[in-house]
């Protein structure tokens, strides 16, 4: 069956199913994002994103009219949400890495000090 064989109502049904699938995937990704970085700022990023997206869909779908602007804004905000999430994750890990480096330096200094003391005692 090709698309030309489908009636108007069948096409509409297919489109609404596709829309639901895409929305489901989007919500699934947001939930995944929420759980992956479920602390502080990353959690906020995971929560604020869908709220903005939902609001935009709501205001741009009044009366059942869906414009290409909806999809543009949806994809834009999707990118912003994921970009922000990844940035927060990067920032958290960078701080942790810096702390590890500082701690390793201290441990190295301690080892050197103890070695020096052992040599002096000999």
């Amino acid at each position: 069956m090709t698309s030309s064989d489908l009636t108007q109502s069948q096409l509409e049904t297919q489109a609404s199913i596709l829309r639901l699938v895409f929305l489901g995937v989007f919500i699934g990704l947001i939930i995944l994002q929420y759980y992956l970085g479920k602390n502080g700022k990353s959690r906020t990023a995971g929560l604020v994103g869908p709220v903005i997206y939902g609001f935009l869909r709501l205001i741009s779908n009044v009366g059942g009219v869906s414009s290409s602007a909806t999809y543009f804004l949806g994809s834009l905000f999707g990118s912003v949400i994921w970009g922000g999430f990844l940035y927060v994750i990067y920032n958290h890990n960078k701080k942790a890495y810096d702390l590890k480096q500082a701690r390793q330096k201290i441990q190295l200094a301690k080892q050197q000090e103890s070695t020096k003391q052992t040599e002096e005692n000999k």
Partner: peptide
């Protein structure tokens, strides 16, 4: 755990942050 899998946590020992923990 899957919760917070990509973010580090920190251990506070006697009021001082000792180290990060993945």
């Amino acid at each position: 755990r899957i919760t917070g899998i990509v973010v580090p946590n920190y251990i506070l020992v006697n009021g001082v942050i000792s180290d990060s923990i993945a």
